[in-house]
Design a protein around this nucleic acid. Sequence first.
DNA 1: CAAGTGTACTATTCGAACTAGTACACTTAA
DNA 2: TTAAGTGTACTAGTTCGAATAGTACACTTG
Lengths: 128, 128
Amino acid sequence: MFRIDVMSRQPVYEQIISQVEQFVLTGILVPGSQIPSVRSLSVELSINPNTIQKAYSELDRRGLIYSVPGRGCFITENAMDILSSLKRKQIGDLEKLMYELVLAGVTREEMIKCMDNAFMLKGDKKND
Amino acid sequence: MFRIDVMSRQPVYEQIISQVEQFVLTGILVPGSQIPSVRSLSVELSINPNTIQKAYSELDRRGLIYSVPGRGCFITENAMDILSSLKRKQIGDLEKLMYELVLAGVTREEMIKCMDNAFMLKGDKKND
DNA sequence: CAAGTGTACTATTCGAACTAGTACACTTAA
DNA sequence: TTAAGTGTACTAGTTCGAATAGTACACTTG
């Protein structure tokens, strides 16, 4: 389920957070879904349990999961809504990246193509 | 000329590299332009000379600047070309970011608006 | 010659990320 | 009840990259 790159500049615990978020956004994890236990995931990924816990604590703090001592961790009801509003704030990043690519000579057509691909990946109609 | 954020996760030397690259892409620095000396920039930014040198060494390695001992550092002839081809490889990043924003509910129209802004910033015509 | 330039090198500090180990309270199922 | 599995909390230590500190050398310009 999870894929971790220990060589990445992005800390492992942030990679875990990102992937849980991605699973929620793509519908793989829905409200009530149980995510792997701290210990089992630490074994599966060969990573220290504390690192997993750090990720889970942060996900809890953000309201994306809730923990039940003795049972496990589960996706909250409004995880999707929280993520959607957070992600929207990255529109500024999009514009910045686009600007840099424009300077490098990337054309409008190429960007449109990217956009079409992005919408295709979601399996969306042309009219969103 | 340079603006450094010591609190940023991005290392200072990488920030300097990025900004030189940006100056080249925007035409502020052209082939033959002299960039600040290691020592003067270290004073201006209140940063250790070694950090500046690390950035300059990397820029040299990438073929964006050339160093003349005793004289200074200058932008190479093909700096722009090198950067353009490098930047083009970030189109994959663009698509990834777009995909994430699509999942978050950002519409095609919003992305088009971003794109228009990016082209506007460069002062470009609609037909690139 | 003096001042300014790039370059090279070693040693050190610093902080984030991560590891290691232990302990406690809770829930579930045999 | 008991054992196994769960989350949680805590301290200590390690590791590594980034950055600092300081020195030294060779070069160019005026």
